[in-house]
């Protein structure tokens, strides 16, 4: 198999009304499998959050990463996603989250490091258009001189790669530190002692409303790779709703790594 180019694929855009955290987790699994099965063209999905959440990585320990009592106190749902990587603290309106469901051929022959950078090259360009000099910080961060902007994670299913990213638009750092347990060991080679200082949100860097940042990002993707408006098919939503209920909202999955 030779590596394919972005423009060789018929990219679809999905950007719907806000959805619950567990449904987002399920949609990522369903959409990845739909693209893998050839029933759906490669797709970019922009998320809107219906409620606050902590999203932990596939291999993270629930109790090591999250103060569950604090999460409950703040009304924050804890969900586990299907990809590895670290915990994300989400409040509606405070993050920009997107998923790319891409054919594996797009990253064929690339190292993991190259594959992550390739999947977000359009975002680096979009941020550049917004006046932010950003770059890829291996293994899986988008950063600028002012601090970390986003974290990415990939998961592979058959012939498809899921690449999803959460960008900080605005952040309640005090609440985040109340809910997430961020240990010293994790920060040991980051050169900073303060977890809150590690993130610098897009709002302060762009001065633009969140919707405007998203619109500019979509424009950039469209200009570079082509993009057509699409919607979630009824059978996809039905599958995802079932999966959200049976798997992603269940303690068995969320505490799978206790």
């Amino acid at each position: 198999m030779t590596r394919s180019q972005w423009h060789e694929h018929d990219w679809q855009l999905i950007h719907t009304a806000p959805q619950a955290p567990a449904l987002h987790m399920a949609l990522d699994e369903v959409m990845t499998e739909e693209v893998a099965a050839g029933r759906r063209a490669p797709t970019l999905r922009v998320w809107e959050w219906a409620s606050p959440a902590v999203v932990i990585g596939r291999f993270q320990s629930l109790r090591n990463e999250v103060d569950s009592a604090a999460a409950k106190r703040h009304g924050i749902e804890v969900v586990r996603r299907i990809s590895g990587g670290g915990a994300m603290f989400i409040e509606p309106g405070n993050t920009i989250t997107y998923s790319i469901y891409a054919p594996l051929s797009l990253v064929e022959g690339l190292s993991f490091q190259e594959a992550y950078a390739l999947m977000d090259a359009w975002v680096i360009a979009a941020l550049g258009d917004l006046g932010i000099k950003a770059w890829y910080q291996p293994l899986n961060d988008i950063t600028s001189e002012a601090g970390k902007i986003a974290g990415a994670a990939q998961a592979r299913r058959g012939s498809t790669v899921l690449h999803h990213v959460t960008m900080a638009y605005d952040i309640d750092a005090a609440k985040m530190l109340d809910v997430l347990r961020i240990g010293r060991e994790k920060l040991s080679d980051k050169g900073t002692a303060s977890a809150a200082k590690r993130v610098d949100p897009l709002r302060s860097q762009t001065g633009l409303p969140r919707e405007a940042v998203i619109a500019r990002m979509m424009d950039t993707f469209h200009a570079r790779h082509g993009l057509h408006f699409d919607h979630i098919r009824p059978h996809e939503l039905e599958q995802a709703s079932t999966l959200a209920h049976n798997k992603f909202a269940s303690d068995a999955w969320t505490a799978e790594v206790p």
């Binding site: 596939r58 291999f59 993270q60 320990s61 590895g84 990587g85 998961a155 790594v257």
Partner: peptide, 15 residues
């Protein structure tokens, strides 16, 4: 023994 963390592992059953 429980291994955990913010790493990436494919397939996830390898954990």
């Amino acid at each position: 023994v429980q291994v955990s963390g913010d790493f990436f592992l494919e397939p996830d059953s390898a954990l």
